[in-house]
Amino acid sequence: MNVVIVEDEPRIARRIERFTREVLSDKITSLQVFEELEPAQSYLAAQAVDLLLLDLNLHGKDGFSILQPLLAAPFHTIIISAYTDRALEAFEYGVLDFVPKPFSKERLAKALFRIHSPTTAAVQKPLKYLTVIKTKTVVLIDIDKIVFIKGAGPYSEIHLDEGRVELHNKNLNKLAILLPESFERTHKSYLVNTREIVAFHSFSGSRYELVLRDDSILPVGRTYYKKLKDKWK
């Protein structure tokens, strides 16, 4: 796992680095610390990074305009900030977690664990928008407009109502962690907004299908079928 830390106070940066190494230990393949945002941004653009731990002054307009393009990137972002009053807003735009300063090792560990298991993320995920970069500009997608998401290798195809499709840089696994509970994994390549489901068909030979409100028909994976059935009982 490649981790990047951006923190302008060296002592705090070292503290984040120390805790991250202790928690993730041998999962880390590389860890870079930047004191300034600019060199970090160029590094992030050039390298395949999995996680960004970012100290960002979210006060004022600039904070969010810096944050939004980062959230469209393939990696997860955890904000470590003193401005706790902006935490909710940060969640709405799709940060993995918001760690308020001052922080303990336990709190940072909790944030780091979310990368792999959405179940540990006990907090209600107030995500409202998915951020995508479209011809170099940031576009916000209202998650209520998403019908389903289809995995496409390192990317995800976001199918919206009225047949529009947007491409997100995060893979399906990462989006699954960020999206609220109304989104359900129905197949290894599909994430479905459960509110859009209108019918559920089962065929012989353990073949299952979902019919959505826009008449699209999606296959249901065998492993997900039982979970879905339990939930829909």
Partner: peptide
């Protein structure tokens, strides 16, 4: 917060 929390 910027001053106090970072200091703490």
């Amino acid at each position: 917060p910027h001053f106090l929390m970072n200091s703490l």
